[in-house]
């Protein structure tokens, strides 16, 4: 496999991607070499287009090819509600549910004091600006339910409260289709605290 410098280089590039080790990278390169139907050219074209066309929306920070993104530009989306997420990928996940009709705001991560990541490293200033300038009534914080995600949510609630906007947190509880036997104690406590009347 490594008799060609080009093959070696492509394999090394694949290995930089998450979840891809040496063997998988070599399999991918081999598969592209074997493909007859222009798969390699088509992949190269898609990658070039990805780099040239795809950018981050200047308003929400989501992935887009036009400025602003389709969600921010849509007249049918509820502009009074903003859902705050960690990564652009989270927008796609929430959109797949079809249950949220408001707008989004990508933070670009969460607090991570051990890595020196604080509020200034995230898109919090941009969120505050959106809340101040727009007619936002509610901000839903949908950061991951980790220690870092919870601390970030707490910080957001503290900076947004003085602006007179309602701040809510996505619910935590037992996943659909799971078994109570395998649910951890903290999740169970949170699910009981967040119970709803039927």
């Amino acid at each position: 496999m490594e008799s060609s410098e080009t093959v070696k280089k492509l394999s090394e590039e694949f290995q930089k991607l998450p979840g891809i080790g040496r063997k998988t990278a070599e399999r991918l390169v081999f598969s592209l070499l074997k493909s007859q139907s222009g798969q390699a050219s088509s992949l190269a074209k898609a990658l070039t287009e990805l780099v040239e066309k795809v950018k981050l929306c200047s308003i929400c920070g989501g992935i887009t090819e036009v400025e602003p993104c389709a969600i921010c530009a849509s007249p049918t989306r509820d502009k009074a509600t903003i859902c705050v997420v960690e990564q652009p990928l989270d927008i796609a996940l929430l959109e797949r549910t079809g249950s949220f009709t408001g707008q989004y705001h990508v933070l670009g991560g969460t607090f991570s004091p051990l890595d020196g990541i604080g509020p200034e490293s995230l898109r919090i200033e941009q969120l505050i600006k959106r809340v101040k300038e727009g007619k936002v009534e509610e901000v839903i914080v949908a950061t991951n339910p980790t220690m870092d995600g919870e601390a970030t949510a707490l910080y957001l609630s503290k900076v947004l409260r003085p602006l007179g906007v309602k701040t809510s947190r996505i619910a935590r509880g037992v996943p659909v289709g799971s078994d109570l036997e395998y649910v951890d104690e903290i999740t169970l406590v949170k699910s009981i605290e967040g119970r709803r009347e039927m």
Binding site: F111, P113, M147, D148, E150, A151, L154, Y155, K158
Partner: peptide, 9 residues
Amino acid sequence: MSDELERFH
């Protein structure tokens, strides 16, 4: 721990 930022830090 994540209920108070000072505590969290």
